[in-house]
Amino acid sequence: MAYFGFKDLSSLSNIDLSIYRYVTQNSDKVVYMRVRDIAQNAHVSSSSVMRFIHKIVFNSFPEFKAYIKNDNLTMKPEQPKFTYINESNIPKDIASKLMISANAVFESDNIAMLGMGDFAFLAEYAARRMASLGFNTTPVTDPFYPLLAKLRNTTNNIIFCFSVTGETAELIELINEFVNDEDVKIVCITSNGNSTIAKMSRYVLNYFEKTHHLSNNYDMSSQIPVMYIIERLDHILENMLEQ
């Protein structure tokens, strides 16, 4: 895209193009330079700089610098604000909750990560990370998965349920068989600490995040707080394994 509103770049000589490239790549510095400073840095003469300024239709060097200064102010890109997650997304007691959950995982023989819909990939992600640490972990993203049959005659089991609302009907039905089973601990990761699944769980790792849906009802809510919980839990487990 042409700078200074000048579009006929083909009319510029090689010397002009050298000045053009230097000015466009260093516009924040050029506004404080003299003609001879630009000439020295562009490796041309001062007269070449002035000819270039007149060729791109500026009457004087001050007018040229004023244009650049104003253009920098109006065209300066907005600095990105990285505010995807902060203290407002995570409860103050999350550290103790994570430690309790990590101890439960550490003592378990079998771990199931349950997630449906948008949470399916998070269940798989969490399962893969825990498996990398050496834990027997299975992701369950199928609401008809025979989890009861898989865990029958086993002990020291832990089930993680991922649900934004904590009201996912398929998950409720799937874990209902284990609510009163002493050999199974249920951990819920949800944004609703008062949900049905949270009440069915022994431990609740909750977070705070506004839900965001498109007009077609697709859920675009941020899952970064969930990723934070998963990775913090893995970090605690890794430290436990190293001790």
Rank of each mutant, 00 (worst) to 15 (best):
E124W: 03
M130F: 14
A131M: 07
S13P: 06
Y207F: 15
M99A: 13
A126C: 10
I56H: 02
N86A: 09
Q25R: 14
Q223E: 07
L73H: 04
N156K: 14
A123V: 09
N110R: 13
V57L: 09
N41V: 00
P146C: 04
A112G: 07
K81M: 10
A39V: 04
T154M: 02
N26H: 15
D118I: 02
T190M: 01
K210V: 10
M200N: 13
S163W: 04
T196H: 08
S60A: 03
S27P: 06
R129W: 03
S195R: 06
L133E: 01
S46A: 10
E209Q: 15
V140N: 00
I197L: 15
T154F: 01
N70S: 14
P225I: 04
M227Y: 04
G5P: 05
M220I: 05
V30G: 06
Y3C: 00
N194K: 10
I159V: 13
N180T: 11
F144K: 06
N194P: 01
H54N: 09
K76R: 14
N216S: 08
V204W: 11
F121L: 13
K76L: 09
S45F: 03
V105R: 01
V164Q: 14
Y207H: 15
A169C: 01
I224C: 01
N14Q: 15
N110D: 12
T74P: 02
D109Y: 06
R202P: 01
M130E: 03
I172P: 00
V105M: 02
N157F: 08
I19P: 08
S47D: 11
E182L: 05
N217P: 00
G115K: 05
N103L: 15
P143Q: 03
Y84D: 14
L171Q: 08
Y125S: 11
S191Q: 13
L98C: 11
I68R: 04
P225V: 04
S48N: 12
L12E: 05
L122E: 13
I85G: 09
K7I: 10
T137M: 03
G166T: 08
E182D: 12
